[in-house]
Design a binder for these strands. Structure first.
Lengths: 357, 357
DNA sequence: TTGTAAGCGTTATCAT
DNA sequence: ATGATAACGCTTACAA
């Protein structure tokens, strides 16, 4: 093989065909090839079939996405931006269910999914957010990422947080928390309540709250849930003091176990553990078992989320279903069907299983 | 507001700024703005800072991705293509761990993640696979999707399957299965073995195998695991007949429970259940518990994968760690660091916990 | 039905 | 450091 031959082959491998070359090969105009891929009505079915078939044989599988979206102003890609880091999100069952719901709709509507995490975008020199035709934003985004996306002027649906002017999908966290706390506390005479809370304050370690922490606002969702717990407790004339509320910085089993162990070895020992996520609650059940504390007879545990694992554990977890999967579906549908403007609040549902009867 | 005003405003909202407009606003040339974003060495630091700052204030956050990648021939996007449907993959703990590992590396290297599922691509008229600079392919892809990606000539790393000429990350499924089967069977006198297999044949329902199924090859991975089980059994002079092998079409708890129930109510009742995934094994443990069969004293259960939930269940699951997270990391690193050509086989590790001592 | 050509927003080259 | 300009691959209005 000579140098020229080598170069030719190299080019063949490196550069995919483009529409112009295909048109030349097939002996038709570029317009016709383009129409074959984009506007079936502009040519005869037989010609279209021939072009599609033969171009596939040549190794051309459709117009280059960058060029096409540059020209058309749309890409067929939907961006999903996650407040937490990407790799963490894949380990979080709630985020996974949301993504699952979104993916269902996108596949159905033939859209591609570009995953963005708020950290990367702001650091990036080229704006990946210029490509997608629309966005699902999950959770309160760090810093300017949110504004950056809004300024694109593209349709946006936010999930689990709201911002005036954009469509959103939410649940009533306060109400869900109230309902389950009420369920847990109503039937006990003198419940000893502890709360295992998620992201209540701005601290990187597991710790108890202090009185001033109660009035400070930090994470919206957690604060709503805490408010729901308080409302239920007050209605039943029992109280939850700050030092019986634990802050857990990340929704991970490891952190949750630390907090659960602290709570369950503190005195007086809690008889009820209100947990702000299922991951936390499941960890609490494991810790209780390892300490020889029987659930639910000696300790009632409640969760929040209703992740799949909640139904599988023993004892099965009593929790609040927040329909994460449906959230994802609804968000994606709103995004893809017309101009999204409305805000939707999905129902939460008390799911009574064995950990708190 | 008059019609013209309305239109102007509409345009302002709809069309994001472009580099040319920004250059005009700032009173510099397009080349300079472009250089500010792409080639810091081409202008003074102070000018660059001014441009970056002021263009952000104008609402310009960096060059349009479609235009940039059209021009440069690269996009900064990595495509991950999953053999299974996207929404299913998000529910599968193994796929999630792989994605987590990939995401770690991509975030670190400032790459974006485009998720493709093999179903969508082939049906799509525009080729989304033209955008990414490289691909991680997970699992044996349906139909032409694989070839379509290879023909792009872009770097590819395959995970959990091999194809000559492309780099790959794999584990030794046969060896892993052999090791755990050997562990499970070696210490019993006359073990009654049943296998709960994943995707062994081409059938959509849970069912037992028949003799001819044993020789037919279908899913590569499952077949390797089955071969490992057989090798271990033969070495210990015990046998596994086809009607003691169940086929489960999807790695879901629901399907697995059906198979487990069949297996555990069949006679003679198995004393050892070799399961081809942790999801299946965990389902088997739950079914055993519901039938009053004690694990591990009356029934030994082994899994495969070592998903996070395996360590958390009671009894904790004895399984084979296949390092899914590391697989993802390695695959992404291979893809991003130079021309990937090598094939790597990651170690599997027997993890003895309580379900099979 | 087909061919032609403008232009989408960017980068890179070249001369200035 | 700048200005002008040619691509990158495609879509589409328009003319034939």
């Amino acid at each position: 093989m000579n140098l020229l031959g080598y170069l030719e082959e190299d080019i063949t491998i490196k550069k995919p065909l483009n529409l112009k070359q295909v048109a030349a090969q097939l002996g038709v105009s570029t317009a016709t090839v383009s129409n074959a891929f984009n506007r079936p009505d502009q040519l005869s079915a037989s010609l279209r079939d021939r072009i599609l078939k033969e171009s596939a044989e040549l190794g051309y599988f459709g117009p280059n996405l960058a060029a096409r979206s540059l020209r058309r102003g749309e890409s067929g890609v939907i961006g999903v931006m996650l407040a937490d880091s990407l790799s963490y999100s894949f380990s979080d069952p709630v985020a996974n269910q949301l993504l699952q719901g979104i993916a269902e709709v996108l596949v159905d509507k033939q859209k591609q999914l570009l995953l963005l995490s708020s950290g990367v975008v702001s650091a990036q020199q080229s704006s990946a957010e210029s490509l997608p035709d629309g966005f699902v934003l999950y959770g309160a985004l760090a810093g300017n990422a949110f504004n950056q996306i809004l300024r694109t002027g593209k349709p946006v649906v936010t999930v689990d947080f709201e911002s005036s002017g954009t469509a959103s999908v939410n649940i009533d966290n306060e109400q869900g928390a109230f309902t389950i706390a009420n369920h847990a506390l109503a039937k006990q005479q003198h419940p000893e309540v502890a709360v295992l809370g998620l992201r209540l304050i701005d601290a990187g370690r597991v710790c108890r709250l202090t009185a001033p922490d109660i009035t400070t606002h930090s994470g919206e969702i957690s604060r709503s849930r805490l408010a729901g717990y308080f409302r239920a407790a007050q209605g039943l004339h029992c109280s939850i003091s700050p030092e019986r509320i634990w802050h857990i910085p990340v929704n991970s089993p490891a952190q949750a176990e630390i907090a659960a162990r602290e709570a369950l070895t503190s005195l007086p020992r809690p008889t009820t553990l209100l947990c702000m996520s299922d991951v936390i609650a499941l960890a609490a059940i494991r810790v209780a078992q390892s300490l020889g504390i029987s659930v639910p007879s000696e300790l009632q545990v409640t969760g929040f989320d209703d992740i799949p694992e909640a139904a599988r554990s023993t004892p099965a977890l009593t929790t609040v279903c927040q329909q994460s999967l449906e959230k994802g579906r609804v968000a994606a549908q709103m995004l893809l069907e017309g101009n999204p403007t409305t805000s939707i609040t999905l129902e939460t549902r008390l799911v009574v299983r064995d950990s708190c009867l």
